[in-house]
Structures are given as C-alpha cells and as structure tokens.
Design a protein around this nucleic acid. Structure first.
Lengths: 135, 135
DNA sequence: TTTTTACTTTAGAATTATTATAAACTAGAA
DNA sequence: TTCTAGTTTATAATAATTCTAAAGTAAAAA
C-alpha cells in the first residue's frame, strides 16, 4: 500500500494523518498477509521497526480509531489481552494455545450443514468458528 | 443435587467442603439448566441468596478450583470479564451482545460438513462455534 | 503566510478485573 | 483435645486498559 493510499485511507475515515497514525497504518496495512496482534506486541514491533516515538495511549487510541473506521477487527481469544486482526472480512480462526498464535481460516474452508434457529425475537448476526489446536 | 452429593463432589475433587465452597457448589450445581456467570454476577447472586459471607478472593479461588476439578468450563467472550459455564460437555454458544447473555447450543444442533486440516505438526483439540445475535 | 481552532499526542493518574500475600481460621487426622 | 495442613480473608500488588488535562500540530480561516 503506497503512502498516498495510506493518507487517503486515514483522511476518508476522518482521521488526520499524523506522524504516529501514518507509521502505524504503514506497519499494519502495507503487507500481503493478515496480521494478528495485541497492543503490546504492536508496541514492540513499532519501537523496533520505526524511528517514531509512540505513547502507549496513542497506540490504544489509534487502534481503536482504526477499528471504529472498519480497518481492523477484534478477535475473541481467551485471556486478558485483546487481539486485533487486519483481516476485516468474515472469517474463522485456528488458535494455537501453546504459542498464542492465531491463523486465519477463509469462510470457504468451513461449511456448516446444520445450524439452530436464533432464539425468539433475535437474528443471527454472524457465526464464528474457533478451532483450538494442540501438538 | 442433594447436599450429600455436593459434599461427595467436593471431597472427590480433593476439596474440603468448607461453608463457602458448599454454598457456592449448591448455588451452581443444584439446578436443572446450565448457568453462565462472571465472578461479579456470581457474587451478586451469592450475597442475595445466601446468608454466608464471601470474600471476593474466595469466590475467585473456589471457581478456579471447581474449574480445575472439571466442574466448570470457561467461555471465550469478547470483553474484560471471564465467563464460566456449568455445562462442561462439549457444546457451542449463542451470544447476545445487547444483553451480554450466553445460551448453550448442543453439539447435535450444529453439523459441520467441511473443516480445514490442522497446520503442520498440530492437531485439532476442539471446535467452538460462537453465534452472535442481533435484534 | 500568519493566526486560529479543533483535533492529537503525551505522561501520568485512575480504573477494572484478577492474582498474590500473609495472618487468622477451620476441617479432619492423630 | 491437639495438631496440622488446607482455607478464608482483607488488603496489597499486578496487568491491561481508559481517562485527564496540558502541550503539540494539522488544516481551516483570515
């Protein structure tokens, strides 16, 4: 993703392209494959890979802004930390509890034949499949 | 579940049947349907329904002991609090984001036709299906 | 361009859920 | 009964996250 596109992405979401936001956006969106991270792991990567300084609160602010703008999704993983995903399409996950690693599964890889009706007055918003791994 | 059985359940798990443990076990296991709770909601119920006093730490200790003994399971729900479930069989969940309510789904209610192979060197431990609800 | 204004970043304090600690308590064995 | 190891408890500590208010900055207005 070119710098111009990064700027466009931010502006079109109503986010001023500040130095920090541009660096975080470049780091997250300028890649070929999906990236899963926690705020802590992202902070480590940013301090290693960029020369820019980031207050922890800025990383939280930015990630929440990106999520709100629909550029990131959140993944339910047991544990204290929140996981984010650059893959914002509807999809599923493998989770390796040994390494705390998430792996995306495309919706086409899982076919559900039978599913219960939603309870009275409710509708199904989406279906998430989580496959826990072991060695 | 009779009091005798509660005591048996505790003893057979290597847990001394203290006043607090017995009260919590009676509250959790003496019912017909599955119960979902957080430590906070459990504390509220206990103070309302029993005359016994509970330090918050005791509730945490007891719930973890019950979980370790296999009498409770933990459910992955987005958010800060940990959810527990008296249903320890393999099963799935509806989750109503409006009310933060979990509803059990029996494994027989969901049939998966196609599922991807586990990544190299890994095996599938279990598959959890999470159906998010909306109004 | 300069000025202004509203949005951002920042360091540090506050909050929330959970876990650790160490002293007082208690169930069950001796 | 007495003893001992397991428990409970209040409180402190920790960890992830959010809040706050002052200082900084992008972009609009003059």
């Amino acid at each position: 993703m070119k710098k111009v596109d990064i700027l466009k992405k931010l502006r079109s979401s109503g986010l001023r392209p500040t130095k920090q936001r541009v660096e975080i956006a470049k780091f997250l969106f300028d890649r070929d494959t999906t990236f899963h991270f926690t705020i802590e792991s992202l902070e480590n990567h940013l301090t290693k890979k960029t020369s820019c300084k980031f207050a922890l609160a800025t990383i939280y602010n930015t990630i929440h802004a990106f999520k709100k703008a629909g550029h990131l999704s959140e993944v339910d993983v047991r544990g204290k930390k929140t996981y984010f995903d650059t893959n914002i399409t509807n999809h599923h996950h493998f989770y390796d509890n040994e390494t705390s690693e998430l792996i995306d599964i495309d919706t086409s890889e899982i076919v559900i034949q039978k599913i219960p009706k939603a309870p009275n007055g409710k509708k199904i918003k989406n279906v998430e499949v989580f496959i826990n791994l072991k060695n």
